[in-house]
């Protein structure tokens, strides 16, 4: 099926006030067609109010080999985590 068209990463904002979330990817010849393909694939059931498409080749990704230096040090410094606050009753979305 694939004819080697460029790959685009798709981000959807499901409603106002939320940020765009990565939902998947599509093939398309250019950005405008990528937006339309994303609309057809990912927003058919009213999932979104806004779509971003980004050329997949433009995404710089962290390497699995660097997992330890990148992410491990974050785990042992408990003072970085907001776990020492008492949450008042009735507060939502924390």
């Amino acid at each position: 099926m694939s004819t080697g068209l460029p790959l685009w990463e798709v981000f959807i904002r499901s409603r106002r006030g939320l940020s765009h979330q990565h939902v998947g990817s599509v093939h398309a010849s250019d950005a405008e067609m990528a937006l339309r393909n994303a609309r057809d694939l990912y927003t058919r059931r009213g999932e979104g109010v806004s779509i971003w498409v980004v050329p997949a080749a433009q995404v710089s990704a962290s390497s699995p080999d660097e997992k330890e230096p990148f992410f491990d040090p974050a785990a042992d410094k408990t003072y970085r985590h907001p776990t020492f606050y008492r949450i008042p009753e009735g507060v939502k979305n924390l």
Partner: peptide, 12 residues
């Protein structure tokens, strides 16, 4: 369709 994406588009 020539592309999987176009399959979905035309079916829509």
């Amino acid at each position: 369709s020539p592309e999987l994406e176009e399959d979905v588009a035309l079916a829509n």
